Amino acid sequence: LQQDLAKFEVGVSRLVKVQLRQNQFDALVSFSYNLGLGSLQSSTLLRLLNAGDYAGAAGQFILWDKAGGKAVPGLLARRQAEQALFKEVS
């Protein structure tokens, strides 16, 4: 697990061009671990984040709740948890 996570930590660090708090970084690693770095790389979430729109980026997490084009309650719960972690104020 640590080796797998290291790949995503490096990938998030490479893709994100703005300053992150630890909780924001952790939320993005979780997101990328579940969806892949390619999904993060091509996402509006990353585009908004790198433009400095942290609130807009936070709003994007819950849009990633589908599998096979259908909303999945378990994915929504995961995205909501990642969103809450991202928005947490240290």
Rank of each mutant, 00 (worst) to 15 (best):
K17Q: 15
G68L: 10
L49H: 01
Q83H: 04
A77W: 02
A27Y: 10
V89C: 00
D53T: 06
L35W: 03
G69N: 05
S30L: 09
G68K: 09
K70N: 11
L5T: 11
V18H: 12
G52H: 09
L15C: 05
Q22N: 06
R47Y: 01
S90L: 13
L45Q: 02
L40H: 02
R79W: 07
L20W: 12
Q19I: 03
V89P: 00
T44G: 00
S13N: 15
L5K: 12
G59E: 11
L28Q: 07
G38V: 01
G56A: 11
Q80M: 10
Q22E: 13
A77Q: 14
W64R: 09
A58Q: 07
Q80E: 13
L49A: 03
S32K: 04
A57C: 06
K7C: 01
Q19Y: 10
S13L: 06
D4Y: 10
S39D: 01
S13E: 13
K66G: 03
F8M: 05
G56M: 08
S42M: 05
G74V: 09
D26M: 12
F25G: 01
I62A: 12
K17D: 08
Q19W: 04
K17E: 14
Y54V: 15
A58M: 05
K87D: 10
Q41E: 13
L76C: 01
A71F: 04
A71K: 12
N34R: 10
Q83Y: 01
F8H: 15
Q24R: 07
F86W: 02
A81T: 12
K66Y: 08
T44F: 00
G36E: 07
D26V: 11
W64A: 08
A57M: 06
G38A: 03
F8R: 04
K7I: 13
F61C: 09
D26S: 14
S42K: 15
F8C: 03
Q3R: 15
A77H: 07
A84R: 15
N23E: 15
L85N: 01
R47N: 02
N34A: 09
A71N: 06
K66I: 06
L35N: 12
F61Y: 10
F31W: 13
S42C: 00
A67C: 04
L45M: 07
Y33E: 01
